[in-house]
Design a binder for these strands. Structure first.
Lengths: 249, 249
DNA sequence: AATATAAGTTGCATAATATGCAACGTGCGT
DNA sequence: ACGCACGTTGCATATTATGCAACTTATATT
């Protein structure tokens, strides 16, 4: 179906603003989207009118607006999986000493919806709200193996360890399926290894994945396997905890 | 400036979906916005294409999408005030035993950007991301008195205690200004009283407000005044803490 | 201070685009 | 099996968004 141009342009502006450090001006937006200044101006005004974009009082540059916080938070509150998973994430941190994450499938990507940080000095920064690829992260591979199962067409490399060969990846997923947990061996970020396992509801339908990640220095290959069983058992416990009236949405 | 219709319609759909419990169908959206089914269908498809809306696999109804979490969270992370304020919110909870909140001005409303819950049994639920009116909440009155200062045209009552008379409100704000903290005496929610005080940056410009709220049963009028000085002093401590290179955005 | 330069907004004619209508397809409930 | 409601698609129309150009405002340069 053909997309509605002006709406699409408005949404593209929001995505643009996400990646700008201190907001953008009308002309800048117009250049990036390859549209006229006047169009950009009018789109921005409409976005501002509804609170999706806000103009900095001083610089007059446009920033993301409060309405996005409102809607985003609202959506997060709906996802009750988060509440259920919280104590299990803490348990993961306690047992491994590394950061624990919770992700769900969204847009054929892994959406990080919660995180519990380790107290260790070296740790990953806040990832909540981030979308990550399915084929090169532990949480993603978990969702791919036990959920979506459709391998993306493009396997873009992020590090030299990223698996870009389809059959190699398929073999990895088969192994993941057999073993019950997925591994990311510096395939997405240099120096970061991750382990993740699937979370199911009462109907054995996949609802998400939990896992831990940490610096390769601490996450040695022996410890990874050890962590694998920890993550798997905690994921199983969480799955069991998810009552029969649990609903993801 | 005239708003761009199709973009505005798309944004209105997002706002609609926020208030629906289990998503909405194409026809329902069309009815609410008083547009044709076909238009609604096409708008929804465009929103879905960019991840702002998601279709439930089972019911085929549209829900808010992950992109909103991404953008909303991204924006929250930018607001460094939150990080600075956290410990002070905890201190507030410790000293009062009630829930503590942090809000900033956005769209001429109070945007709740953080919260620390009390351990008491009775407590308000998560408000983060919520927009509240300025004229009938303690945080709002604080922002109104020390920040925006423009009283809204419409003073809609929420309870029988809501101040709907302009001059009465002006008198309250004058009192707030003199005393240094604002009070909400069941003016927004029945049975809930709040106290709040302003937070400034190094240039003495208002950046936000912090406060506590609790059930009227515990928040007696004597305690309110006692809490007033607690909140004011903690707000002052936070203001002092905000380094000179602090920036809200 | 005066001018030059860039950014942003508005008017307007054009054409592209979104719109509503109607018809079609699909799934659900009776 | 039938009817009904919901969702999607084709199409003609005209509304709506668009780009251009002119104008205004703010900023930097000499």
């Amino acid at each position: 179906m053909a997309e509605i141009q002006s709406l699409a342009r408005g949404l593209k502006i929001l995505n643009l603003l996400e990646h700008s450090r201190d907001g953008m001006g009308t002309t800048e937006v117009a250049t990036q989207l390859e549209i006229d200044k006047s169009s950009a101006s009018r789109l921005l005004h409409t976005l501002a009118k509804y609170g999706f974009v806000e103009q900095d009082q001083l610089t007059a540059r446009y920033l993301l607006g409060p309405q996005l916080v409102t809607l985003g938070q609202h959506l997060l509150n709906r996802i009750t999986l988060r509440d259920h998973a919280r104590p299990y994430l803490h348990e993961l941190v306690d047992k491994t000493g590394e950061c624990a994450h919770l992700a769900i499938l969204a847009q054929r990507q892994a959406l990080y919806i919660d995180q519990v940080e380790s107290t260790a000095a070296l740790r990953v920064e806040s990832e909540i709200g981030t979308l990550s690829p399915l084929y090169c992260t532990a949480l993603g591979k978990t969702l791919l193996t036990f959920g979506d199962s459709r391998i993306p067409d493009e396997l873009t490399p992020f590090t030299h360890r990223t698996v870009t060969d389809r059959s190699t990846l398929e073999a990895q997923l088969a192994q993941t399926s057999k073993r019950g947990y997925a591994i990311d061996d510096e395939e997405y970020n240099y120096g970061v290894r991750c382990v993740a396992a699937p979370v199911y509801d009462h109907k054995s339908a996949l609802v998400g994945a939990i896992g831990v990640s940490g610096p390769a220095g601490r996450m040695t290959l022996e410890r990874i396997d050890e962590f694998g069983s920890v993550v798997t058992s905690i994921a199983a416990a969480l799955s069991a905890r998810l009552g029969y009236d649990f609903n993801l949405k």
